[in-house]
Design a protein around this nucleic acid. Structure first.
Length: 455
RNA sequence: GGCCGGAUGGCAGAGGGGUUAUGCAGCGGACUGCAAAUCCGCGUACGUCGGUUCGAGUCCGGCUCCGGCCUCCA
């Protein structure tokens, strides 16, 4: 796995040989998830599936940030209680990620349920001389940690030189960041030794990772944009509270996501929510689109790319549909090439190439034995990637599968065409096929009869 | 201004000193009443200029362009 901390690929060895612990930064719940939020969820879902295959026990923690000034602002604008916004957004998030085939994490801690843990951590940082109180705030003292900046490879001078915001007057050092800040009566707040207030953004991940995974754990993941300041600050808080050598061993960051070559932003109007995409394509196609590029590469999300992902699944499911009556070899292993690709820094594009080769082999396989063996392997590889779990017939029909009337009508047309063909009235047969094609229904004649799919 | 990435055939996208993926699209063929699907065949592409080397997409340096971070952000 590539480790942001070392800047290279290192062999992965868990701290406990038979228990892998990982933490991934989850959403701030104030709005619908966009495709950029979905990328790390899907990427780390594949990583978790892989780890579960390789190790007896995996604990995967992904937090929910439900106290944040963006949420407060949203509540104020909408005139809606914070709890209502966060509760609704969490439901949407779960629905959207589930549609993308992402399994739930083992723990999904919410910041508001761990305020005590955060306060204890802050108190410890103050005791150890790494934090100080000023005007109702508690600030982390960056100069107290000489190795601050290691993850993001920047010196304090760099950070100060690049500062674009005014430095709050109560900061002893311009790089210091907030652990706790005061809340007025209109804002959510909790009593604390430093007055009624709320936590800074970074402290929750330090507190909750320690609570569920211990002071040291194996992998910490998230988007590349979190490297600075969020992850850098998490490291500062955790290491200064718990001692040198603690906290995450391996840091994994997924690359940026762009839309049609541009940064996704509300002002550009190219903000794509998962919900939008699910209206246009099956969740599995969105997932495949995200996995078609290596996780550390920049990913340019386009309609053409989404179409291509859907066509790839058409090919895979068509191959599986052809052997629908052949039972898959239940004992089939995950193909060596697929496993090797994923074990090489989660190389999902190469794993998909292997899958294409297996599908080609299945298309050529002539004996039920070979078909069973290959089908089993393809499904095992698919399960590892979180793909190909559907019934091929359901995939072919797509949304039309929900429409029993349509299915019945298409069947009726297929029978009519069959009769026309038997009578060698090809003009009539082609007219039926063309009429269905105009509705987006494609007929395919095969040895076992005629099947249909949506175009 | 500081820092960090990226640039591969028509498109997407791996690889990473010598054998040059894979998919889509395209072309030719097999099969088919015709299609579709499937199968077979066809592609020396690595931003640019230098350097190292017997040999460089692959290593080193300069440059150009693109994106991002330095403030909330996956």
């Amino acid at each position: 796995m590539h480790n942001t901390l070392t800047g290279r690929r290192d062999p992965f060895e868990p701290i406990e040989p038979d228990h892998v612990r990982l933490y991934v930064c989850g959403p701030t719940v104030y709005d619908r998830a966009h495709i950029g939020n979905a990328r790390p969820v899907v990427v780390f879902d594949v990583l978790t599936r892989l780890l579960r295959r390789l190790y007896p026990r995996v604990t995967y923690v992904r937090n929910i940030t439900d106290v944040d000034d963006k949420i407060n602002a949203r509540a104020r604008e909408a005139g809606e209680p914070i709890d209502a916004i966060t509760a609704r957004t969490i439901v949407h998030f779960h629905d959207d990620m589930s549609a993308l085939g992402a399994l739930p994490p083992d723990e999904e801690p919410r910041a508001t349920r761990h305020i005590q843990d955060m306060q204890r951590l802050i108190a410890r940082l103050i005791d150890r001389g790494h934090a100080y109180e000023a005007e109702g705030h508690v600030l982390f003292s960056v100069p107290s940690m000489p190795e601050y900046g290691r993850l993001s490879r920047r010196s304090r001078d760099d950070m100060i030189a690049g500062a674009r915001v005014e430095v709050a007057p109560y900061k002893r050092d311009p790089a210091d960041f907030v652990l706790w800040k005061p809340s007025d009566d209109t804002l959510p707040g909790w009593d604390s030794p430093w007055g009624r207030g709320r936590p800074g953004w970074h402290i929750e991940c330090s507190a909750m990772s320690a609570r569920y995974l211990g002071e040291s754990f194996d992998i910490h993941g998230g988007g590349l944009d979190l490297v600075f300041p969020h992850h850098e600050n998490e490291i500062a808080q955790s290491v200064c509270a718990n001692g040198p050598g603690t906290f995450a061993r391996v840091w994994m960051h997924n690359g940026y996501l762009m839309v049609n070559g541009e940064k996704m932003s509300k002002s550009l109007g190219n903000f794509l929510t998962v919900q939008d995409l699910l209206a246009r394509a099956p969740g599995e196609a969105v997932r495949l689109g995200l996995l078609s590029t290596h996780y550390r590469q920049p990913l340019d999300w386009t309609d053409a790319g989404l179409d291509q992902a859907r066509r790839t699944l058409d090919r895979f499911y068509a191959a599986l549909g052809r052997v629908a009556d052949v039972p898959a070899d239940e004992a089939a292993p995950v193909p060596e090439g697929v496993l090797a690709a994923l074990c090489d820094d989660l190389n999902t594009p190469r794993a998909l190439t292997e899958l294409h080769a297996l599908v080609g082999a299945l298309n050529k396989a002539e004996t039920p034995e070979d078909q069973s063996r290959l089908k089993g392997r393809i499904l095992a590889a698919g399960a590892l990637l979180g793909l190909l779990g559907q019934d091929p017939a359901a995939w072919r029909a797509g949304d039309s599968a929900d429409d029993a009337d349509l299915a019945a009508r298409v069947e009726e047309r297929i029978q009519a065409r069959k009769a026309a063909r038997a009578a060698r009235d090809f003009a009539a047969a082609d007219a039926i096929r063309d009429a269905l094609a105009a509705e987006g229904i494609v007929l395919e004649d095969g040895p076992g009869g005629t099947t249909w799919r949506r175009a």
